[in-house]
Amino acid sequence: MALFPLHSNFQADFVVQLVPVDSEDTMDRVAEQCAHHSVNRRVRKQPGVMRVRRHRTEELFPRDMKVSDSGLKPTEVIDIIYQKS
């Protein structure tokens, strides 16, 4: 377990923010922590599941993938988007 800083680009928000997560967090947990700094602050909660992808890519990380297994680098930018079920 180690502190792992990422930068959150949350769907519909206007700014990218620093979000320190843990290297053992799953992508679902990462998305929750990113949402804390955007949802109900400047964006509304949307229907669907929050998913994580590397910034400016299309492929979503598996929801249960750990940060340490994702290949993400510390301070990398991630997109958090709602996937409609």
Binding site: A12, V15, V16, Q17, H36
Partner: peptide, 21 residues
């Protein structure tokens, strides 16, 4: 705020873009 915005390594200002669904 409860965290810092990402700051550009050139202009040193927060990195912003266009919001909205």
């Amino acid at each position: 705020p409860e965290t810092l915005p990402l700051v550009c390594n050139m202009n040193q200002l927060p990195i912003v873009g266009t919001p909205g669904e």
